[in-house]
Design a protein around this nucleic acid. Sequence first.
RNA 1: GCCGGCAUAGCUCAGCUGGUAGAGCACGUGAUUUGUAAUCACGGGGUCGGGGGUUCGAAUCCCUCUGCCGGCACCA
Length: 649
Amino acid sequence: MAQISLTFPDGNAKQFEAGVTPAEVAAGISNSLAKKAISATVNGKHHDLQWPIEEDAAIAIHTMKDEAQALELVRHDAAHIMARAVQEIWPDVKVTIGPVIENGWYYDFDREEPFTPEDLGQIEARMKEIINRRDPVTTEVWDRERAIRYYEANNEPYKVELVNAIPDDGQPIRMYWHGHWQDLCRGPHLQHTGQVPADAFKLMKVAGAYWRGDSNRPMLQRIYGVGFLNRDGLKRYLTMLEEAEKRDHRRLGREMALFHLQEEAPGQVFWHPNGWTIYTTLQDYMRRQQARWGYVEVNTPQVVDRKLWEASGHWDKYQENMFIVEVDEEHAREKTINALKPMNCPCHVQIFNVGLKSYRDLPLRMAEFGSCNRYEPSGALHGLMRVRGFTQDDAHIFCTEDQIEAECKSFIDMLSEVYAHLGFDDFKIKFSTRPEKRIGSDESWDYVEGALETAIRATGADFEIDPGEGAFYGPKLDFKLTDAIGREWQLGTFQVDPNLPERLGASYIGEDGAKHRPTMLHRAVLGSFERFLGIMIEHHEGKLPFWLAPRQVVVASIVSDADDFVHEVVDKLKAAGVRAEADTRNEKINYKVREHSVGKVPVILAIGMKEVEERNVSLRRLGEKQTRVVALDEVVTDLAAEATPPDLR
RNA sequence: GCCGGCAUAGCUCAGCUGGUAGAGCACGUGAUUUGUAAUCACGGGGUCGGGGGUUCGAAUCCCUCUGCCGGCACCA
């Protein structure tokens, strides 16, 4: 037998016979390690303990203390155990795939009957039973034919398809056994089922999911589970879910009287006074920013004849998602077909096309708070996050190819400032390159991708490449930010489009006196106001920055003899540009404080006779128990400063 | 669009196997003048999401439509 040398994390090396498994290595170190071991990293690869090591390697034996490896294994084994539990209870359920995902796993099943919440309880109980059996996990390498024969014999057509899909490149096909139950799997796995903590997982929900993610294929039933290393981990996760629910913008939207949605206008927002105050405050801010960064603002029609959409290519590529409006003959001389605009770009080109443009006019930055309507699939609608009617902070920059770089840099500067002002300090940039389905020649893609890459590199910003994710007409940069509870949102975008100016015949006169095609850059910082406000509300848990808060200050009387002074304070605050209101209702101060706190009013000024006599206010900030007595003039000055939008300070 | 669930007062929800609806909060009125997260009493309020069916009788059972929720697919 050949000898190999294994190097441990502490730098010591030991000799073993080739083919030794990590389990044997662990056993050679100590009995307790042999028991506690869960897997090993061999030359940087994560393997289970049965993996034979054939050559010199660096090895690290893992236990439950190695959180990353332990979580992966526990979730992975839990997925198998869940599938086994399901097949033990309902033997004719067909199994498919079950990967580890963030916080847990899922497994897709094919079964006539839908799984019910009661079924989940039953499956969970069976999983615990399987864990208690401490069934050993073993692995075997099968050849393709044997695997197919096995799955055909067991009436598992999905597994047959999976085996057939494994590329025939000499890679072994591995089977894992959890006791008598087996599954096709890459591994790695734990030593035995008892290593999955029985009190740290939970089955969360059942949902439909297409086989292989393809909407033309059968719909399977997916069961989601979450799993952790101990009960505390699970508890923390469940608490986190409750916290996330508390910041749900749909709930806060109601509690703060911001907006509502109703059946007659699915996916479209009824903005109430409070919500509209936030909206317009943000829009005013963006309007100032755009002016500062050299944009001109325009406004274009909502209902546009299909001829324009045919010319732009939308009729062909996007019709499914457009609201089509047919005007009937009684009202018009001829029946015409229009569509609500789903995007602003074709209209902006129309403005560009009026009159001759010179190279001196470029870059021309044309912005619109463009109201768009898209017929989103019903299942996609979600509060403010995915709607059918929305307004973008949209703009199109008409420029020469040479100007792309400078425009890109200036856009990133603008976007960084806006995000910082709105409380988002860091964001990621994704560079999406040519997709499979695209228009335009490879040479033109080479050129445009190159130009955009040069531009982004010149800014010095970090970015990741997302191959194949570009728009069909050109490459793009997407800007993603992370919110207060770690979720990523894609907001800003910067897209290079050499195609639309061509289709819609945009041109300018160059220095040489000849006509040239401009390049068009599509860009947005916030995306849609609706979605952005949804994100803002959740990010801040409704406690918006003072300048954006719809109700900034409530001045509340403690006794009705203080009412006159309350009104005086409110008037002074309003005159100083603060959104202030009086609460002189016949209620206790406790009641008022609670009500306005629930309503997320950032500042409450309480006024009793003491304050009236000394012309002070008692100031209390949202979320704080402390109050502070401040002179009236001082509070007006301070709050007025705080109410000033960040770009005007 | 697909799978599953849900739809009762403004909100959150109760209403068992069919016998024409109830609570808390909110709202209105009155009392109370109150010191930093819910004062008390009384009162008004529902075509039980829409339509159809079964039944002597439907919030309850069945069909259908719409919307919402959770996923999947989609999101140039």
